[in-house]
């Protein structure tokens, strides 16, 4: 198995608070990797370091063998990392399809000169972009809503649209920040199918943060558990379920230890 991404001794310190403390991990090919942990465990902070929103205080991040620690988010997108947000950040005044179009690398890098001159070639190039984006809409199940304004979609559909937008950047790795939050159980079922489709049929790697244990256990090949900024467990779902430290982190220590 080859290595996709690796973090070496990554720490993030805000003022005096250590949000992420010396985490090292490797993401291998062909696995859906999940990051879990109680609220405030540092999951999203860690995520933001992978996507470039924060620069780690210490440590390095490597993607396909290349050191990307200092790269900005938009530069990492060009390298093949895209993401969704915990609190949805769609372009609400754009339509569903436009949200994907603008994420398409060939669309947002359109040459101004060509745009101003117009012409058949430009139109043909755009036709291709639209077709590719509509394909993605088909995959996330929003084809019939392509002309709807993003803000008018239901909450669950907005989450799917964000995944679609992330896919439109043509990434190698997709980072999903609580993709199932606010979804009902049926929508979560569909989400699982979608994530499997993305990894198996589209050959993209997926790393996700999730709260819903059942969902995580069902979909992940490997799970990492964060607590108080530290990595406390790393293993297959079955192993994590049995792990004493994880149980304590989630449920608190036994009654006897409580003051």
């Amino acid at each position: 198995m080859s290595e996709i991404m690796r973090a070496d001794n990554v720490s993030m310190i805000f003022g005096g608070l250590t949000a992420v403390d010396n985490i090292s991990l490797t993401m291998e090919d062909n696995e859906i990797l999940s990051l879990i942990g109680p609220n405030g465990a540092g999951k999203t902070t860690f995520f933001n370091m992978l996507t470039g929103v924060y620069q780690p205080t210490f440590g390095t991040i490597t993607f396909y063998g290349e050191n990307i620690t200092k790269l900005k988010p938009y530069e990492r997108v060009a390298k093949g990392i895209s993401r969704t947000f915990q609190n949805i950040r769609l372009f609400s005044s754009m339509t569903t399809l436009e949200n994907l179009l603008v994420a398409h690398p060939k669309c947002n890098s359109e040459n101004i000169g060509r745009v101003l001159l117009g012409g058949k070639k430009l139109k043909k190039a755009r036709q291709e972009i639209v077709e590719e984006c509509e394909e993605i809409l088909e995959i996330v199940g929003l084809k019939d809503k392509e002309d709807e304004l993003a803000t008018n979609l239901s909450y669950g559909k907005q989450r799917l649209l964000e995944i679609g937008r992330a896919l439109a950047t043509n990434p190698k790795l997709v980072l999903l920040d609580e993709p199932g939050a606010g979804m009902n159980s049926m929508e979560k079922e569909e989400l699982s199918t979608l994530i499997r489709y993305i990894t198996q049929k589209m050959d993209k790697k997926v790393l996700l943060i999730e709260h819903d244990m059942r969902f995580v256990m069902g979909i992940s090949d490997r799970i990492l558990v964060l607590d108080h900024g530290e990595l406390i467990a790393n293993g297959k779902p079955e192993e994590i379920q049995q792990n004493q430290m994880v149980i304590e982190a989630y449920l608190g220590k036994g009654m006897t230890d409580e003051e």
């Binding site: 988010p73 938009y74 997108v77 060009a78 950040r89 754009m94």
Partner: peptide
Amino acid sequence: LLNRLVNSGFGMAMQTIKADEIAAESIGIY
């Protein structure tokens, strides 16, 4: 000319910056 410009990929990218810069960066827009 401006009509062509704003109704292009470039124009859409400009509008994502108005809407949400962090989201714009997350899809590769500088």
